[in-house]
């Protein structure tokens, strides 16, 4: 067994710890989303929802709780998509050459970067969870300590697999490009549709059928499903819409993420085999 990827992991984490600004800035955005968008929108949604007859026997949840799960997912998406960017800098400013000239198998570079990206996503997800709850998101309502622990692990499982997929994608893009500017452009192009064609901030029922279909194929939707299942429950109503998640639905969401992750790993592996760094 070759643990070369741990070397790449170690090095990326050194940078992460050394440059805490990276962590802080990546947390500011979700904090702002929740503090402004979340609180503002929950005020308006909460004013609207009394007009919608509540579905009897289903616990209602506030908008902030609903969207906090989406914000965790969104942050994971952003962080993961940018996680491969370090490769681009390493490529242009040297370190990747040293790595490519070393006996380290190339897939270990992918694993190392993905693993450190996943670690960062875990840290962020946990911080946002706590921050959201401080702002008033009602996660884990009525759960016992044991249930909370299991739910947190469940959330991290979904966050982890999802982030691996997008980190692989990000690594594949970074190794294929020459400039950080180009990567920035592609990322913006990717994040917009992924983010808005998902159930992160609003229900998808009202979407036109085409968009609904897109959102079903969208990994972000499935990550949000997973987070809401574990953080809120399998049956609740929000913004007048009934949400139920069956165990098989949850399993389906997980499978979509796994399949996406494997496909993206394939893509990254292929790009790395052909990469020339001089």
């Amino acid at each position: 067994m070759h643990f070369g990827f741990l070397t790449i992991y170690w090095r990326d984490m050194i940078r992460f710890v050394r440059f805490r600004t990276l962590l802080v800035s990546s947390l500011v955005q979700p904090a702002l989303w929740m503090a402004f968008f979340g609180i503002a929108m929950s005020a308006s949604f909460n004013r609207l929802t009394p007009d919608v007859p509540p579905i009897p026997g289903v616990p209602p949840i506030g908008y902030l709780t609903f969207m906090a799960a989406g914000v965790i997912a969104m942050t994971t998406l952003f962080t993961s998509l940018f996680g491969g960017m370090v490769l681009l800098f390493d490529k242009n400013w040297g370190l990747l050459r040293e790595v490519m000239a070393s006996p380290l198998p190339r897939d270990h570079v992918i694993f190392g970067i993905a693993l450190s990206g996943m670690t960062k996503s875990f840290i962020q997800a946990l911080i946002i969870m706590v921050f959201g709850m401080l702002l008033g998101a009602e996660f884990f309502r009525g759960y016992s300590a044991g249930q909370v622990a299991i739910s947190v692990l469940g959330i991290l499982l979904f966050v982890g697999i999802f982030s691996l997929g997008f980190l692989f994608l990000s690594a594949a893009i970074a190794i294929s490009l020459e400039s950080p500017e180009g990567m920035q452009g592609i990322m913006t192009l990717l994040t917009m549709p992924i983010f808005f064609a998902s159930n992160a901030l609003y229900p998808v029922n009202a979407f036109p059928p085409v968009l609904q279909a897109v959102s079903i194929g969208n990994p972000l939707t499935h990550l949000v499903n997973g987070i809401r299942y574990f953080a809120i429950g399998d049956r609740y109503q929000a913004i007048g819409v009934l949400y139920t998640t069956t165990p098989s639905g949850l399993l389906f969401s997980l499978s979509v993420l796994v399949v996406f992750g494997l496909a993206m790993f394939g893509l990254a592996w292929w790009r790395f085999q052909r990469a020339v760094v001089t």
């Binding site: 090095r11 050194i14 940078r15 050394r18 390493d90 400013w93 040297g94 370190l95 050459r97 040293e98």
Partner: peptide
Amino acid sequence: VFQEVTLDRDM
């Protein structure tokens, strides 16, 4: 030893 510097500036 490469012609150009290949050191991570932040290590």
